[in-house]
Simulated scan of single mutants.
Amino acid sequence: MTDIKQYDEHAYEIDTESAGKLAVDMETLKHFDLSDHQHGTAACGCCGCCFTGDCCGDEDCVKGKECGAKDCHKACRENNEHHDCAFCHLAFDSDEASHQEILNDLKELSQALAA
């Protein structure tokens, strides 16, 4: 990652070889533990159903229970704005090389913004 590009007031862009340009929501990055991420888990720590469209709008999501396909009040803002979201790719992209590349870029972005 050579330079920092900003989408808008709340999101930056990372450019990966494997997944292309991905949006990074700054509030999500602030609270995201890069060292403790698991595939299939959304950045918010919920089940990730908001990325698959099978989402609940109640506490079942937080408790990891099966969703009832209701509207989600925690849907990914970047996806709603038609960006490819870095955190969605982390949750659901099964390619380990891509996964590691995104984590590395998020770490670099986080360090660059902190400087």
Results as ranks from 00 to 15, higher is better:
Ala23Glu: 05
Asp33Val: 04
Ala42Glu: 08
Asp8Lys: 08
Asp105Leu: 15
Thr41Cys: 05
Leu29Gln: 03
Cys49Met: 12
Thr2Tyr: 08
Gly48Gln: 00
Cys56Lys: 09
Lys70Asp: 14
Asp25Phe: 05
Glu66Cys: 01
Gly64Thr: 01
Leu34Ile: 14
Asn80His: 09
Cys50Met: 12
Met1Asn: 05
Cys50Ala: 12
Glu27Tyr: 12
Phe92Gln: 06
Asp33Thr: 07
Ala69Glu: 15
Glu78Ala: 14
Gly40Arg: 04
Asp25Thr: 01
Lys70His: 06
Gln38Asn: 09
His89Gly: 02
Ser94Cys: 04
Asp60Tyr: 13
Lys5Ser: 11
Gln6Asn: 10
Cys85Ile: 10
Lys65Ser: 05
Thr16Asp: 09
His37Asp: 14
His31Ser: 12
Thr52Ala: 03
Asp84Glu: 04
Cys49His: 07
Ala97Gly: 01
His83Glu: 11
Cys47Ile: 01
Gly53Cys: 06
Gly64Arg: 03
Lys5His: 10
Ile4Asp: 11
Tyr7Thr: 08
Asp54Gln: 11
Asp60Ser: 15
Glu78Gln: 09
Leu29Lys: 02
Thr2Pro: 07
Lys63Glu: 15
Ala42Asp: 13
Gly20Gln: 04
Phe87His: 03
Asn79Glu: 15
Thr28Gln: 01
Ile102Phe: 08
Glu9Phe: 03
Ala112Glu: 15
Phe51Tyr: 13
Glu27Thr: 08
Cys76Thr: 03
Gly45Asp: 14
Tyr7Met: 06
Ala11Trp: 00
Ala11Arg: 14
Ser98Met: 02
Cys50Ser: 12
Ser110Ala: 08
Ala97Thr: 04
Cys72Met: 01
Asp58Tyr: 13
Tyr12Cys: 07
Gly68Leu: 12
Cys85Phe: 05
Lys107Val: 05
His10Glu: 12
Cys61Pro: 06
Cys85Arg: 01
His73Pro: 01
His82Lys: 15
Gly64Cys: 01
Gly53Val: 09
Asp60Pro: 01
Asp95His: 02
Met1Phe: 09
Thr52Glu: 11
Ala19Leu: 14
Phe87Cys: 02
Glu78Asn: 06
Tyr7Ala: 10
Ala43Asn: 07
Asn104Phe: 08
Cys49Ile: 00
Asp33Arg: 06
Ile4Glu: 09
Leu109Ile: 10
Phe92Val: 04
Thr28Asn: 00
Gln38Ile: 11
Cys46Ile: 14
Cys55Gly: 15
His89Trp: 06
Ala19Asn: 15
Asp33Cys: 05
Asp54Cys: 00
His39Phe: 14
Ser18Gly: 07
Cys76Val: 02
Cys88Lys: 07
Cys72Pro: 04
Gly45Phe: 10
Ala11Ser: 15
Glu66Ala: 12
Cys44His: 03
Asp33Glu: 07
Cys85His: 02
Ser98Phe: 02
